[in-house]
Design a protein around this nucleic acid. Structure first.
Lengths: 212, 212
DNA sequence: TAAGGAATGTTGACATCGTCTACATGATAC
DNA sequence: GTATCATGTAGACGATGTCAACATTCCTTA
């Protein structure tokens, strides 16, 4: 139903008008609704009412489509992470980094399928320049935020890169584990999940007793 | 060359003799050498000098083969983790858990391709009973070890499940990040990696100043 | 404004893949 | 020794990704 959401030009013209964006949009829907293994270039073309060869004009191959999706995913998770920091209204590095971890996890849960697609083998294999840049951007904001906490006195005897990997690993690993139905069968309520997120992140970047 | 390693019966008989095991073995090789997207039932059959339909007698479908691989992977990482604990020769829960984290990470690096296959979408989707059991076994040893450290005084105000997720997330996230060429471009020497592993795990389960 | 190239979509083809069915062969239990 | 079951073979089918040749439309530019 939302298949034809874009390109709402009532005249069904030869040219679609916005096919690349529509393909990405539909691809995201499919991943979310049927899983990434149901993603098919021909299927997308069918859904969009376009010939099976059309997508090739916009994506060199299927891996390129996946990379484009992953790129927007990384940018999106970066934004969510940064927004969470800003939403604290605090300039305290610990409070900000703590919020970033929670924001990251909440994004991962709100976008499980896309989140897991970020680690799909094809994405790693045929990474584009844009994807690499998006990933670098994310890594950079984490590293910067970690560095700020260190300036505030956190784990000053630990090398920055080690502290960064550690800090980043917690939300990453937790997201991977908790979004995996095989690894985590406890069905939980919304509120329970929020509490779990808080508690886990508190163990990496404690903020108890810190004033904004 | 190592393709025909198994089933070295010089008489090329109609029946292969050990096809299931050979398929698994060859599949592991392919994943390691060419990546998981190069894995093909027909390709394996070709490599093993067997008709393209033969693998279907032993694996219901391709996903079942992946699940079998993942199952042995989880059992293997469980063993590596437990062995690392035992290798300490200590009965101190902190020392043992610390070693487990390091053992897990070392296994992940030594078997990157297989490790990443554990999180392949198809594995999640069509998980077998054996796979679920293998995963549960791994989860159990981690939870038990975490519980022991808590009895020794670690983070006693934190619920066990939270502490378990946290403790497990660090090696999991670190392995995922560090085995990803996109996330970690710093090429490092063997010794550097070992040191990094030690330092990261020390941040989750500190053992500095503990006597065996 | 007319023309012509660039962008975009279509059609048909090809190789490959997973999977199914019918059949052949070999092993094993009785 | 024979019957039955497990295992391997051969052929077919539909689906997919990708390519090349062609069609249509857009847009720049003279």
């Amino acid at each position: 139903m939302s298949v034809q959401a874009t390109a709402a030009t009532e005249t069904r013209s030869y040219h679609h008008g916005n096919l690349a964006a529509s393909i990405l949009e539909r691809a995201a829907e499919i991943i979310d609704e049927e899983g990434i293994e149901a993603l098919t270039l021909r299927g997308i073309a069918r859904d969009l009412g376009v010939s099976h060869g059309a997508p090739n004009r916009h994506f060199k191959n299927k891996a390129a489509l996946l990379c484009a999706l992953a790129t927007s995913g990384w940018l999106s998770v970066r934004d969510a992470t940064l927004d969470a920091a800003d939403a604290t209204g605090s300039s305290n590095a610990h409070i900000r980094l703590n919020a970033m971890g929670q924001g990251y996890l909440r994004w991962a849960f709100a976008n499980r399928s896309l989140y897991r697609a970020l680690y799909h083998p094809d994405v790693n294999r045929y990474a584009s320049t844009e994807l690499k840049e998006a990933i670098d951007q994310f890594s950079q904001i984490v590293r910067d935020a970690v560095e700020e906490t260190q300036k505030e006195g956190r784990a000053q005897d630990v090398p920055l890169n080690v502290l960064t990997v550690f800090t980043n690993a917690v939300p990453t690993g937790a997201a991977l584990m908790l979004t995996d139905p095989l690894l985590h069968h406890d069905v939980e309520s919304e509120g329970e999940l929020d509490r779990l997120i808080e508690q886990i992140i508190e163990l990496v970047v404690p903020v108890a007793g810190i004033n904004k």
